[in-house]
Amino acid sequence: MLASLATPRVFFPTIGGRPLGIFVKLGITVPVQLYVGFGCFGAMVASIILSFLYRHQVTVNQDNILKCNRWFQICVMVVNYVLLSNALLPALFTSPDSQLATKIEILRNEPCPAKDLLHPDSYVLQSSVDRLFPYFCGLVVFVGCQCAFMGLHCSWVLFFSTLTTKLSRKTRKMQAKLLVALVAQFAIPTTLCYCPMAYFAITTLVNHYWQCK
């Protein structure tokens, strides 16, 4: 919904773009739109981690060393929500001070710049991918490690570990189905969300000028 209200047009391979939606008519600045949009996306990712955490804690036995108390679970989720919802802040704080000078520099260096790059509503988040790419790769690894660890440990408990003797066959089967459903619910939307972002990152890194005719 936020994407439709902002209607962003990305300037490949520049790390920038121009919003074309109703938010512009309402006078909402581009940095605020970016913060809200990426903040909602980060909250969605944190919610996925919460789902994995809940399924993991339901699956493991009470005497398992990885069985966490409620306060620890709350702390984990607060850290994830705060970190992922504000993931774009470092990029916003280090964005170019002069948008006009940055746009002129892009026009000098890019063979095929966007036609409306100099439009007042266009915004360049970063002039280079050198600092931004490792940071977001670290976030992807941070999220992936959490989900992978909890998912793999649940799989181990349900399918391989002798600790499953404390679970009835019916309960173990139900938990396995819920875990598979959770992985499917996580994989499908995540793939759809990350494919455009991955394409954006690849085109920025390899300087693929898809706008040329």
Rank of each mutant, 00 (worst) to 15 (best):
M1T: 11
L5Q: 01
A6K: 03
F11V: 03
F11A: 05
F12R: 08
R18D: 09
P19L: 09
P19H: 08
L20D: 15
I22N: 14
I22M: 13
F23C: 01
V24Q: 07
G27S: 05
G27K: 06
I28K: 00
I28M: 07
T29A: 11
Y35S: 04
G39E: 01
C40K: 00
G42L: 00
A43C: 06
A46T: 03
L50P: 04
F52R: 03
L53M: 11
L53E: 15
R55C: 09
R55V: 06
H56V: 06
N61E: 14
D63C: 12
I65M: 12
K67E: 05
I74Y: 04
I74H: 03
M77Q: 12
V78P: 01
N80H: 13
Y81M: 02
Y81G: 03
L83C: 12
A91H: 08
A91L: 10
L92H: 02
S95Y: 09
S95R: 13
T102L: 00
L107T: 01
P113F: 03
H119V: 07
P120V: 04
D121M: 09
Y123R: 02
Y123A: 05
V129W: 12
D130A: 09
D130C: 05
G138C: 05
F142C: 02
C145R: 05
F149A: 15
G151D: 04
S155I: 11
S155R: 15
S155Q: 14
W156K: 08
W156P: 00
F160N: 09
T164A: 03
R169I: 14
R172D: 07
Q175A: 13
K177T: 13
L178K: 15
L178H: 15
L179R: 12
A184H: 10
I188D: 08
T190D: 07
T190M: 10
T190E: 03
Y199D: 10
F200G: 08
T204M: 13
T204N: 14
N207C: 09
Q211T: 13
